[in-house]
C-alpha cells in the first residue's frame, strides 16, 4: 500500500528496523533501492541525515545515494502532509477529466508535487493506478476513490478542515 501513511513503528525502533533491512542485504550497495524503500516507510521521507547514514553503512558515495533517491518519484526528500491526494493522470483518467481535479486541488491547496505550508495537505499526481474502469480515480490517504468530481473533492477538503 502507498507508504505515505505516517510511520507506524515507534520512534526508537526505527533505527533498529533500518539496520535489520541493511544487514538482511549484507550491507550491499546493490540493495540501495530496497533500503531506501524501508527508510521511507519508517521515517516518511528521506532526510539528508538519513541519506548520509545509509551512504556510510552501504559504503556508497553520498552523491550516488542522493542521485538514486532523487531519480525515483517514489522517494520523497521532504516530509509529506497530514493528508495526501494523489490524482491519477493516466490515459483513462485524463479522458474522463482528471485535469479538472488537479486544477481544483491546485486552486484550493497547493501545486501538484508540494504540500500546503500548514502541512495539512499534499497534492500528488500518478500515472495509472490500475483503476481505469473507475476513472477518474484519486488515491486519498491510501484508499482509492472512484469517479471523483471536483465537488467531491471540495466536500472532502471541507470535512478535514483544509483552508
Amino acid at each position: 500500500m502507498p507508504p505515505n501513511a505516517p510511520a507506524a513503528a515507534p520512534k526508537d525502533n526505527r533505527e533498529k528496523l533500518l539496520e535489520r533491512a541493511m544487514s538482511r542485504h549484507q550491507y550491499s550497495g546493490d540493495a540501495l533501492i530496497e533500503v531506501l524503500h524501508t527508510a521511507q516507510e519508517l521515517y516518511g521521507f528521506l532526510s539528508p541525515h538519513l541519506l548520509t547514514a545509509i551512504a556510510h553503512k552501504l559504503r556508497l558515495p553520498p552523491s550516488r545515494v542522493l542521485g538514486v533517491a532523487s531519480f525515483y518519484h517514489f522517494f520523497s526528500l521532504k516530509p509529506k502532509g497530514e493528508h495526501t491526494f494523489t490524482v491519477c493522470l493516466g490515459t483513462a483518467c485524463y479522458v474522463a477529466g482528471a485535469l479538472g481535479l488537479v486544477e481544483r486541488l491546485e486552486k484550493r491547496c497547493c501545486k501538484a508535487g508540494t504540500t500546503t505550508p500548514d502541512g495539512k495537505v499534499s497534492v500528488e499526481t500518478a500515472r495509472c493506478i490500475g483503476s481505469c474502469g473507475l476513472a477518474p480515480a484519486v488515491i486519498y490517504d491510501g484508499a482509492v476513490l472512484a469517479r471523483v468530481t471536483p465537488e467531491g473533492l471540495d466536500r472532502e477538503l471541507e470535512r478535514i478542515g483544509a483552508k
Binding site: 550491499s28 550497495g29 546493490d30 525515483y72 517514489f74 522517494f75
Partner: peptide, 19 residues
C-alpha cells in the same frame, strides 16, 4: 520499483535491480 516508467526498458530495469 520506485516510480519511473523508463525502468520498464530492460537495460534500465537491470540498472534498477542493481540499485
Amino acid at each position: 520499483g520506485a516510480g519511473a516508467f523508463v525502468c520498464g526498458e530492460e537495460t534500465a530495469l537491470i540498472a534498477s535491480i542493481e540499485g
